[in-house]
Write a protein that binds this DNA or RNA. Structure first.
Length: 878
RNA sequence: GCGGACGUGGCGGAAUGGUAGACGCAAGGGACUUAAAAUCCCUUGGGAGUAAUCCCGUCCCGGUUCGAGUCCGGGCGUCCGCACCA
């Protein structure tokens, strides 16, 4: 076959891509109808925050979703594949402060830019369903649901802490607290108590936990992370008597929660959260304690900040009496690592078996007594110094518990104390506790969904009547001063009470942006409904999302909140199901090498020249030749300047090349390293496919399928159907990198076949080559849709490949008559044996023992055993 | 600190407990070309040997197994999340 072809000019990606995008657009082939009778498939990628421009992480995420969407369409499904904007959030306010641009203007400009960028990627999205969460047409429904949740008892107001910047007089997000100081002012942050709105997600702790078992298409690691986050623990509520003379206001007891009642005889101290009522009472009479509690307030509110801070305490002078020995007095401390939110805000400390407690006693010289002896340890010599023992074992130093296992001891303690009563209550009660806290949704910020509440002096908290929704954000705001512009707006918050018409104030807090993203997937099913958040027929037909794809960083919060919100919507009649996402896939990040100059400045990859290989690799500044340090491979970020702009890549190579490369190198759940060589490899493959298809297009095959295929045709057909089988399987399981490898293998086999063919191949081969071409194009279409359309047309088809069915597999072609099995001797491979596909074990064994290599390895001895694993391997045990 | 993951050639990676290194990249050699680009062909984990072939190799140390990259225990290293970033 000659290489001369009318189609051997290079593929012009840029020209072809915009051309095909117009064709798809004009024919509206990606618009989804809610009355489509075919089996539904809802594929969704986590919608982006409109930060300015799309980044490579978006390209990776949306390409994966698009592959699934296109594959499912080809498989005959009605596919819902929408896109929108998670458009509220702090960066818009930061832009307003830093650049004097209104958050709304900034956000919509970003949306316009990013929409254009996404469109240039050739994604098969139904843009008619586009939503932006900052649009009142979206958030008015969210306000309606807030009020419905309120009526259903799913919302409450309570106190909680925020990071307070005492200089800027503003609430800070955890990410705005750097080393305990405000990011703009540099002032040491304080904790402040505010009355805030909460969704009662903790009502669903058990339900959210047990239902994880039903999510069998979620990654195990995400389910495990959620399980640990919910943190169910079975323990004991236990009332300690206080030594009467020591209590500040004649308090008689202190109630604690423990999961380690077995270690009660190892107790060395009691500890209270700084906010605990008893701590507060003691502080009122002790200025030094009050000062200590004040000091605890100068700590960030994040868990990591609390856990990594030095364990500090203050002895209140109060003594608690041991439940099994009233003469045993334990000192009561206030400690900075005890949380008021968890359990009762008080604990007993057993330093020998808990790291935090041990750190604490080592600071305050309270000592420790081991009470659980690890198996195999001598109880007489077992001591604890710097590492506590938190495993199971036998009880020691524990009076009546001695000799029991620690699990038996837990039971014994519980049984004894729950029978004892003081007042009308038992001294101890078994209790199931959860780490999961209620979801605080109040934010003291402008750019978020207003909470539809009016505060009236007479009527209290009043919901805004439905007819007055949406409560829209005022646009005439300024960001000259720190703090919430809604709060200092001259008129916006002044309203009449909906109940009594007296002067009242609007709630000026807005909602956490996680609320916006907790139901957008439901809104996509009918974004045109102006009357209510969802349309039952649509939402119940489309949900749950069949395949949800997004970053692992959302493994806990976004996904857990959405699971709760869907249940809350169910309870209030907005959905008919509990779980929003039947299938979940979490993809890895896009990372890139970093480069630094001698002076420590980061350098963009575009300005770096790399020479040498392996250890000899070195980098220089392209312009001056100044040597650069090659740094670690890190998540692309503006601060490290290791970003690649998708626009540049699409302009230089086209969207298909970028899409292909994003899928090709790494397993999708793992990080992928962006390299220039990798992109060029993808680009060469695009051109190679185009040339190959051109050569196949020149072959004129018979119009009807031949009845017989010769060896050459058989070989290429096996390659085609083998690839079809693998690629189908790989896409269905989202193993895109393997899918790419199989397409490469098929392309290699096909170019061999083309190379071996005569100028005018026999009809059976010509037919097989054309069949292979048709299969090849449809196989890579989900990944490179523009190139696929161009190739499909080049092969003479008048249809769009985007609307074509997936190729039909001929399974007979995958079956071989003989198989070659590897032969091991003592687990090491020594030879191969080729046998009939259906050969019995005895036949295989005989064939194996006759092999020269086996005879030599056995050296005349009889084999002890021959293990034949059907279709797999033979192992001779000598 | 707590929770979760990951670790295989020069590089990204492949491998239902069953031939370690598919496929791609990079590198080296060759063909074509006045030359270059592009393209095509060959080689490519390390070591020994003319060769057939053999030995060593999946972060480290142990264990289970006929057989371990894969399972179990203990280390080391890297990364992610931690409730007001999205």
């Amino acid at each position: 076959m000659t290489a001369d072809s009318s189609k051997n000019e290079r593929y012009n990606a840029r020209e072809a891509e915009t051309r095909w995008q117009h064709v798809w657009d004009e024919r509206g082939i990606y618009a989804t109808k809610n009355d489509d009778p075919r089996p539904k498939y809802y594929v969704l990628e986590m919608f982006p925050y409109p930060s300015g421009r799309i980044h490579m992480g978006h390209v990776r995420n949306y390409t994966m979703g698009d592959v699934v969407a296109r594959y499912k369409r080809a498989m005959g499904n009605a596919v819902l594949h929408p896109m929108g904007w998670d458009a509220f959030g702090m960066p818009a306010e930061n832009a307003a402060i830093d650049r004097k641009v209104h958050p709304k203007e900034w956000t919509y400009a970003n949306i316009a830019t990013m929409k254009k960028q996404l469109q240039s990627m050739g994604l098969s999205l139904d843009w008619a369903r586009e939503i932006a969460t900052c649009n009142p047409s979206y958030y008015k429904h969210q306000q309606k649901m807030f009020l419905d949740f309120l009526k259903a008892g799913l919302v409450e107001r309570k106190q909680s802490k925020v990071n307070w910047d005492p200089v800027d007089h503003t609430v800070l997000a955890n990410e705005q607290v750097i080393d305990g100081r405000g990011w703009r002012s540099g002032a040491v942050v304080e904790q402040r108590e505010l009355t805030q709105w909460f969704f009662k997600i903790s009502d669903y702790s058990e339900e959210l936990l047990t239902a994880l078992d039903t999510l069998d298409r979620w990654p195990d690691k995400v389910r495990l992370m959620q399980k640990n986050w919910i943190g169910r623990s079975e323990g004991l509520l236990l009332r300690f008597m206080l030594d009467p003379g020591t209590a500040p206001n004649k308090e008689t007891e202190l109630e604690i929660f423990t999961t380690r009642a077995d270690t009660l005889f190892g107790a060395k101290f009691m500890a209270l959260a700084p906010d605990h009522p008893l701590a507060q009472a003691a502080a009122a009479k002790n200025p030094k304690l009050a000062a200590f509690i004040e000091q605890c307030r100068h700590m960030g509110t994040s868990q990591a900040a609390i856990d990594t801070a030095e364990k500090l305490g203050f002895d209140t002078g109060i003594k608690a009496l041991h439940p099994f020995d009233p003469t045993w007095k334990l000192p009561v401390y206030v400690a900075n690592f005890i949380l008021m939110d968890y359990g009762t805000g008080a604990i007993f400390g057993c330093p020998a078996h808990d790291q935090r407690d041990l750190d604490f006693v080592n600071t305050y010289g309270l000592g420790n007594t081991p009470v659980v002896c690890p198996p195999g340890q001598d109880s007489k010599t077992f001591v604890i110094t710097t590492t506590p023992y938190d495993g199971d074992g036998r009880m020691i130093n524990s009076r009546f518990l001695d000799g029991m296992t620690n699990e038996e001891a837990k039971e014994a303690v519980a049984k004894r104390l729950e029978r004892e009563t003081r007042g009308n209550r038992p001294v101890a009660q078994r209790q199931v506790n959860y780490r999961l806290r209620d979801w605080g949704i109040s934010r003291q910020r402008y750019w978020g969904c207003p909470i539809p509440i009016v505060h009236c002096n007479k009527c209290g908290v009043v919901g805004v009547p439905e007819k007055d929704l949406p409560v829209t954000l005022p646009e005439d705001v300024n960001f000259d001063k720190p703090g919430n512009p809604l709060d200092r707006h001259p008129t916006w918050k002044n309203v009449k009470c909906p109940k009594c018409a007296a002067s009242a104030r609007r709630e000026t807090d807005t909602m956490d942006t996680f609320v916006d993203s907790s139901w957008y997937f439901a809104r996509f099913t009918d974004p045109w409904n102006e009357k209510s958040p969802t349309t039952p027929a649509a939402v119940n037909a489309w949900l749950p999302v069949d395949q949800y794809i997004g970053g692992i960083e959302h493994a806990i919060l976004h996904l857990l909140y959405s699971r709760f919100f869907t249940r809350a919507m169910h309870k209030t009649g907005h959905t008919g199901m509990d779980e929003p996402f039947a299938g979940l896939f979490t993809q890895g990040m896009v990372v890139h090498e970093t480069y630094r100059s001698k002076s420590g400045d980061w350098v963009e990859p575009a300005n770096v020249k790399i020479d040498g290989i392996g250890d000899a690799r070195h980098a220089t500044l392209a312009t001056t030749g100044e040597p650069l340090e090659i740094g670690s491979i890190e998540k692309m970020s503006k601060s490290k300047k290791n970003t690649i702009d998708p626009d540049d890549i699409i302009a230089a190579y086209g969207a298909d090349t970028a899409r292909w490369f994003m899928l090709s190198d790494s397993p999708p759940e793992r990080d992928v390293i962006w390299t220039e060589e990798g992109v060029q490899g993808a680009w060469r493959f695009v051109q190679r496919l185009w040339r190959m298809v051109g050569e196949i297009a020149d072959v004129s095959g018979p119009s009807t399928r031949p009845t017989e295929f010769g060896p050459q045709s058989q070989k290429v057909r096996k390659a085609a159907h083998g690839a079809l089988s693998h690629v189908s399987d790989d896409i269905a399981k989202l193993r895109f990198n393997r899918c790419v490898a199989h397409i490469y293998e098929f392309a290699n086999a096909l170019s061999d076949a083309i190379g071996e063919a005569e100028t005018a191949p026999a009809p059976d081969l010509a037919w097989a080559l054309r069949e292979s071409g048709d299969i090849l194009v449809r196989l890579f279409h989900p990944m490179m849709p523009h190139l696929a359309e161009e190739c499909w047309a080049a092969l003479g088809h008048k249809t769009l490949v985007a609307t074509e069915a997936w190729p039909a597999l001929e399974p007979d072609l995958l079956v071989e008559n003989t198989i070659t099995l590897p032969v091991q001797v003592n687990g090491k491979k020594r030879a191969d044996v080729t046998v009939a596909r259906d050969a019995g074990k005895a036949d295989i064994e005989a064939a194996v023992l006759a092999l020269d290599a086996v005879i030599k390895a056995l050296d005349g001895k009889r084999p002890k055993k021959v293990i034949v694993v059907p279709q797999r391997i033979v192992n001779v045990v000598a």
